[in-house]
Computed example of a mutant assay.
Amino acid sequence: MPRTFLDHLAITAFSLESGTAFVADALGVSPQAGGEHPRMGTHNQLLRLGDTLYLEVIAPNPAAPAPGRPRWFGLDTLGAGSSPALSAWVARSTDIQATAAAAAEPLGPVESMSRGALDWLITIPADGSVPLDGVAPALIEWRADAHPASRMEDRGCALALLELFHPDPDRVSRLLSSLELDAPVSVRRAGPGAAARLVAHIDTPHGRRTL
């Protein structure tokens, strides 16, 4: 089975404006314009974190028709009062079908998606949730010669570490092992009564910042 690699992080927000402001405030760097996802009724902004890694701010697109299905990354659970948050991450494979079949946790059916000239395959649970209490990755396979991050403006940001906090860290570790993940990702035990969560440590022109 092919190894997987960290592809991108997702900041979910009720509006693209609030999510973009959240990232700009936390990192001192503003994302650049992205595009629209017609099948999901969402749109995004992007921040390069490396040649093959980026941060995505994603939100429902109020100008797009409702998708007739749950949106990805749990976006339909957000209301106007919801705060933007680092809610999901995506792992890249060159054979998404084989990787999904080998995963120790169900990550959802493989679906085709697009944004402008970009096309890819991605796993999306039917209910639009993020698996394993929000810490399991979606899988992606790009249908492109070059990674989209390579075409983004370099604003001096790089991921140092992604931490996955979960009440059952052994379960998370088994999943990452089954994916043969090669990435700066660490699994931590969530404290008593604490919910599962993601924490990203990002080097910026203003020093190391946390999302």
Rank of each mutant, 00 (worst) to 15 (best):
A160P: 03
S82Y: 10
A144F: 07
A100I: 00
L118H: 14
R71I: 00
S83G: 02
A190Y: 08
I124T: 11
G193F: 06
A66T: 10
D182T: 11
A195D: 15
S173P: 01
S150T: 11
F73S: 00
E111D: 03
S178V: 02
L159D: 08
G74R: 01
Q97Y: 08
G134H: 00
E153P: 02
D133G: 03
P131V: 07
S177Q: 13
E141W: 05
P84M: 02
S150H: 07
L175E: 03
S114R: 15
I96Q: 11
A144S: 15
G79R: 14
D168W: 12
D133C: 04
R174K: 09
S178G: 06
S186Y: 01
I124M: 06
P131S: 11
H147K: 05
W142I: 03
L78Q: 02
E180D: 15
V90A: 12
S82W: 10
D154F: 05
D76K: 11
E105L: 11
M152V: 03
A160L: 13
D168S: 08
I122N: 09
G134E: 01
R155S: 13
T77H: 11
D127S: 06
F73P: 00
R171V: 06
D182Q: 15
V90Q: 07
D127V: 03
A149V: 05
D168I: 03
W72P: 00
P148E: 02
P125N: 07
A160N: 15
A80Y: 12
L139G: 02
P109M: 10
L121I: 01
R151S: 08
P109A: 14
D145V: 11
L132Q: 08
A66W: 10
L175R: 00
R188A: 01
A196P: 08
A102H: 15
S177K: 13
A146M: 07
A183Y: 00
R171Y: 04
G81N: 13
V185W: 01
R197N: 02
R197I: 04
G128A: 01
E153Y: 04
A103E: 10
W120P: 05
A138V: 04
P192A: 13
W120G: 07
Q97N: 09
E105F: 10
T77Y: 05
E111N: 04
L162N: 00
A158C: 04
P169R: 08
S114D: 13
I122S: 13
T94I: 10
E141V: 09
D95A: 09
I96H: 14
P84N: 05
D182L: 12
S178C: 09
R92I: 00
A126M: 13
A183S: 05
M113W: 12
F73Q: 00
R143V: 09
T94L: 14
D154G: 03
A126L: 15
S93Q: 05
R92V: 00
S173C: 08
G108F: 13
S129P: 03
A104R: 09
A100V: 01
L159C: 07
P106N: 10
V130T: 12
G128E: 00
G191L: 11
C157S: 12
V172I: 07
F165C: 05
V110C: 14
A138G: 07
D119E: 15
A190Q: 07
I122E: 14
A103F: 08
D119V: 04
R188K: 14
R115F: 06
L107R: 01
R71T: 01
D95Y: 06
D154P: 04
L179V: 03
A66G: 07
L139M: 08
A138N: 10
